[in-house]
């Protein structure tokens, strides 16, 4: 008798789980792009409906040797190793902003190759190590 009740409850539970998974899947399907925190330069290149007025974020790596700055503006190239986009920004950058490091720029596109940022965030990667090791790493990279 007890066993039968447990069986009923188990089937309720499994149905509930299946429905929940399905509904949550639908929610993410609807949200789709909104779940992405930023677009990569490749995604921007391949997009068809370019909205220049919408505030978006572009993320990737700051290309080595691409930072140019004067008193009012800083310009650099964000790359995902396939495609690139030029970002222009005036303001202070976070301490971790550096060439070869991850970055997320928030602002508006002028065209597919040029982005005007209102805010710059530094993206940290998953590597943690003491400073002494950094020297070895750079040697390896060369």
């Amino acid at each position: 008798m007890l066993f039968k009740k447990v069986k009923i409850r188990l089937s309720i539970l499994l149905t509930l789980s299946a429905i929940s998974v399905f509904l949550i899947f639908l929610v993410f399907k609807v949200l789709e792009d909104n779940v992405l925190y930023f677009y990569s330069p490749s995604e921007i290149k391949n997009t068809n409906d370019l909205n220049l007025n919408k505030k978006i974020r572009v993320g990737g790596m700051v290309k080595k040797g691409s930072i140019q700055s004067n008193e009012t503006e800083i310009k650099f190239v964000v790359t995902d190793l396939n495609n690139e986009i030029i970002v222009s920004y005036s303001g202070t950058v976070p301490a971790l902003f550096a060439e070869g490091k991850g970055v997320v720029a928030e602002g508006r596109l002028r065209d597919k190759k040029f982005f005007i940022a209102k805010r710059i965030l530094a993206k940290h990667d998953e590597n943690y190590m003491p400073p002494e090791l950094r020297g070895n790493l750079n040697k390896d990279a060369k």
């Binding site: 925190y37 976070p94 301490a95 530094a122 940290h124």
Partner: peptide, 10 residues
């Protein structure tokens, strides 16, 4: 200090 923001809706 790291990202430059307290919160992000990621």
């Amino acid at each position: 200090p790291t990202w430059g923001t307290w919160w992000a809706w990621d």
